[in-house]
């Protein structure tokens, strides 16, 4: 894999990028397609530039956890497929996939974006559990932001399946018209630091040239629901302030695309 690390860094110092985008410009196209998989309760495919991610929601009925008997649950998993890049190998998720899943999970869980109480059917006995699987299809950089959008779009598109009233079991082949209790949509924007400069939506080459990154999940009002600093480099407090402003602004741009998703 070609990285052009030296040139990426030299250009950044001249406020330039290899593909001549500005530092805050996302790649095009930005596209969200929902209901791509009939077997999922909700699904989406999101494309930003050449990066493509799918997400699928499955629902199940389970016994609530003992410490939250009146709540359902949500779990987010990520698979970085060897189909999506020569860098990934078959086998159980590596640390990169685990981090991607957990950061996406926190952004949604901590914002209480899914009303877990509304998922409860019978306290202590039965509640809906939501599982989202994030699947990389083509990793060309910035998986965090693309995966978060795919997760939100899939959750938005999801419909509860029919429950057989006699047996209490789920008929996965039939969906109700009822959507998930999604109360808000916290959007993740990741800012990368290269040679002390901050930039968004990196290509794979830029991602590999970055010293540090910070993923911020943020809602409409600017409330932050998850942070994750990555990379070997450091961030100053002043930089964190700048990053939050930047992410809030960009999240609203991505929100426009997400809100265009028509959910029938």
């Amino acid at each position: 894999m070609i990285t052009n690390t030296k040139t990426v860094k030299e250009l950044v110092l001249q406020n330039k990028r290899l593909d001549m985008r500005t530092f805050t410009e996302y790649r095009q196209p930005i596209e969200i397609e929902t209901n791509i998989s009939w077997t999922a309760e909700g699904s989406a495919k999101v494309t930003i530039g050449k990066t493509v991610v799918m997400a699928g929601v499955k629902l199940s009925l389970e016994k609530p956890y003992n410490d939250t008997p009146d709540e359902g649950g949500i779990m987010i998993n990520a698979e970085l497929l060897p189909l999506s890049s020569s860098e990934y190998e078959p086998g159980p998720p590596g640390i990169k996939a685990v981090e991607l899943a957990r950061v996406t999970d926190r952004g949604i869980r901590e914002a209480k974006a899914i009303d877990l109480k509304a998922l409860c059917i019978e306290p202590g006995e039965k509640a809906w559990f939501v599982t989202v699987d994030i699947i990389s299809i083509n990793d060309a950089g910035n998986l965090f932001d693309v995966a978060n959008l795919a997760t939100l779009a899939a959750l938005k598109a999801a419909k509860f399946p029919v429950v057989n009233q006699e047996t209490g079991s789920i008929d996965y082949k039939q969906k109700t018209g009822r959507s998930l209790p999604l109360t808000k949509e916290p959007i993740s924007v990741t800012v990368y630091k290269i040679k002390g400069k901050l930039l968004l939506d990196p290509t794979m080459e830029e991602e590999k040239s970055a010293e540090a990154r910070l993923t911020v999940s943020i809602d409409k009002k600017g409330t932050i629901s998850a942070l994750q600093k990555g990379g070997e480099g450091t961030l100053t407090i002043a930089e964190v302030g700048t990053i939050i402003d930047l992410t809030h602004e960009k999240a609203e741009e991505l929100r426009v695309v997400l809100e265009r998703v028509v959910v029938s």
Partner: peptide
């Protein structure tokens, strides 16, 4: 299949 391009950043991007 590997190609080396050397010039101004704008020129390189256009050539690419």
């Amino acid at each position: 299949g590997l190609i080396w391009i050397l010039g101004s950043p704008e020129g390189e991007a256009a050539a690419e």
